[in-house]
Amino acid sequence: MAQVMAQDVRQLSRMTLDPLMWTASLAALLLGVSTLFLIIIYVLYQASGLIGEISLGAFLFSEAWVPLAEPPRLGIMHAWMSTLYVTAISLLVAVPLGVGIALFTAELAPPAARAVLQPCLEVLAGIPSVVYGFFGFVTLVVWFEAWFDMTTGVSILAAGLIVAITVTPFIASTATEALDAVSAGDREAGLSLGVTRFYTIRRIVLPRAMPGIFAGVVLGFARAIGETLAALMLIGNSVAIPGSVLDRGQTLTGLVATELGEAAVGTPKYHALFAASAVLMVLILLINVGILLAKKRLLRHGF
C-alpha cells in the first residue's frame, strides 16, 4: 500500500507542493537528527586532543585534578567518584520511593487519588534543576548544618537527596506504565485463589512488570548521572577525593560546568574537560541505546 501511495505522490508531484514539502521536511529531519552525531563526533574530537598528554588509565584512575600545576595534572577520579556517590544515594532513595508511588498509583489508589497524584508528579518533573538546587540550598543545607554540626551543609548527601527528588517522578511514571500494562485478568486470576493482594503483586504483577521497571530504573540512573546544576549547587565543588557522604565533592557534570568557561581554548585542560564530557556521554548513550534496543526486542517478541 505504501508503494501505491508513493506512486501517487510521484504522479502528482509535478503539479503540487509535494516535491517541495518532501525535500524540505526530509532536509529538516536529517539536519535535526544529525545533531546527535555532531555532539558525539565533536566531543570525541575535542577529547582526542588529550591523547599524548595523559594516559587513559591515569586520566580515569590515578591523577588528581590540578590544572594550574606545571605541567597540569588532569585526572577526573574525584569527579566520577562523586558522581557515583551522588547517583547511588539518589537511586537508593528514588527507586523505593518511585516504585512505591507506582505501586500505589497502579494497585491501590482510588481513581480520585490517581487523578491528583499524576499531575503532581508531572509538576515535580517540570521543576528546573536550578530551582531544585536553590531549594536544597535553603532547606537541606541549612538542616544539615544543624543536624550534623557541619560548618557548611553542602555535601554529597545533600546533592544526592535533591537529585533523588529530580529522578523520582521519572522512575514513578515509567514503573506505573509497566504496572498498568499487566492485565487485569492476571490480577483477578491470582486473587481468586484466595491469596492477599500483596502476594499476588509479589508473585505475578511484579515479575510481569519487572522488565519495564528495570528499564525505568536504568534510565533514571542515566538521568542522575547527567544531572548538573542541582548537584553542582549542593555538593560544594571540592576536587579532593570524597571519603564519606558528608564530604564535599564535585560531580563530572559539575566539573565541566564550573571549569569549561574558564579554560583557555586548545589547552590540555580544555581537552580534558571534553574528555570528561565524553566519559559522561558514552556512559549515558550506551545505557539509553541498550535499553531502547532491549525494549524494541521485547516488543517484537510480544512480551
Binding site: 535535526g32 537528527v33 545533531t35 546527535l36 555532531l38 555532539i39 565533536y42 566531543v43 575535542q46 534510565l219 542515566a222 538521568r223 548521572i225 547527567g226 544531572e227 548538573t228 557534570t253 565541566v256 560546568a257 569549561l260 568557561g261 574537560l273 571534553f274 564530557s277 559522561l280 556521554m281 549515558i284 548513550l285 539509553n288 541505546v289 531502547l292 524494541k296
Partner: peptide, 21 residues
Amino acid sequence: FLAECLAAVPALLFGVLGYGL
C-alpha cells in the same frame, strides 16, 4: 530511535557542544 537518543542526552552536553562549536 535517534530522536529518542538525542532526547536522552543531558543538557550539559548540549551546552558543551554549543560552547565549543
